[in-house]
């Protein structure tokens, strides 16, 4: 029996084309510096933060939801771990686990509201975003907590066989999520439920449990991102990286995730994260502002959507 190839592949193909074009263009503009070892290293240090956060956003979007609370969760995890390591003088491991545990504690509330009370994800996570950020603010009183033990800084700044640690963490997260989505029951249910939750319910899928796990997973990945972030900055604060929130949604859609749920795969998302980071780094090398980069990200997304639409019309 033959296998069908979905038309949804086209988006990934377009994306790869855009990436190649951008890399060549920026490579020429920067006289090859973009592809030099230095800038590759800097990309590998910077990409993972947006990358892991985007991975956290991906599963909720596949179920047809969204998680606006990931940045707040990342910061909370970072703040708790930071307080643990500095003020309380806890061992690094304990502080890190404490941070992740608190992230998951709020995730339980979030998952409960969405899965069992059926609060629309966008509202539940909006409320929790503000709430969790508030908790971090109360804990830090708005100050920056800085000065972590050297061994903890390795997570954000060290290298393993020449590969930056953050990138290693990102790679492991991506691999974990990839296996979860493609090779487990949970992953299969996520896609099916994202397409039609009534049908999965009638087929005996425990929808609520799948949704609950989805939001637990997003908080867990957000927590990891928070740890990488504070290690990289050697500082923790209640409202770091808030501009990343909309970018994660953008990266997911650019990578082929259908915001209605049910479609989109991890490799596409990874490629889209790379596009965004390469553009940012290239612009950085050219001495252009990060704002121009963000404008360009928007334009790239709109461009991909428009091309997609034209191809779609051509087929129909």
């Amino acid at each position: 029996m033959k296998r069908a190839r979905g038309g949804r592949e086209t988006q990934s193909i377009i994306l790869v084309g855009v990436v190649t074009f951008l890399i060549v263009l920026l490579g020429m503009l920067t006289k090859g510096r973009l592809l030099g070892l230095d800038s590759l290293q800097s990309i590998a240090f910077q990409l993972p933060l947006l990358g892991i956060l985007t991975l956290a956003q991906m599963t909720p979007m596949l179920t047809g939801g969204i998680d606006l609370s990931i940045i707040a969760t990342a910061n909370l995890c970072g703040v708790i771990a930071a307080i643990g390591m500095t003020r309380s003088g806890l061992p690094i491991g304990v502080a890190v686990i404490l941070g992740l545990a608190l992230a998951l504690l709020f995730a339980i509330l979030k998952g409960f509201l969405i899965a069992w009370v059926s609060v629309p994800a966008i509202i539940a996570t909006l409320g929790l975003m503000i709430f969790i950020r508030g908790v971090s603010l109360v804990l830090t009183r708005g100050y920056v907590i800085a000065g972590f033990p050297g061994s903890f800084l390795f997570l954000g700044n060290g290298t393993l066989f020449g590969i930056p640690m953050p990138f290693v963490v990102f790679f492991l997260c991506a691999l974990f999520l990839y296996l979860l989505l493609t090779r487990t029951r949970f992953g299969t249910y996520v896609y099916l439920l994202g397409s039609n939750p009534t049908a999965t319910l009638f087929a005996g899928v425990n929808n609520a449990a799948v949704l609950f796990k989805t939001y637990l997973l997003s908080s867990f990945l957000a927590g990891i991102a928070g740890l990488v972030m504070i290690s990289r900055f050697n500082a923790a604060q209640a409202d770091y990286g808030e501009s990343y929130l909309l970018l994660t949604v953008l990266a997911c859609v650019l990578g082929g995730i259908d915001p209605g749920g049910g479609f989109g795969r991890l490799p596409g998302v990874v490629v889209s994260i790379i596009v965004l980071q390469v553009v940012a780094t290239g612009f950085n090398l050219l001495g252009l502002s990060s704002h121009l980069a963000s404008a360009l990200w928007g334009l790239i997304l709109l461009g991909v959507i428009a091309i997609n639409r034209m191809i779609g019309e051509g087929e129909a």
Binding site: L192, N196, V205, G262
Partner: peptide, 16 residues
């Protein structure tokens, strides 16, 4: 609506 996840593959709808 209740029976099938229409946009997803036949295979997944069978083995669900």
């Amino acid at each position: 609506i209740q029976g099938l996840v229409l946009d997803q593959p036949v295979a997944d709808n069978i083995v669900i």
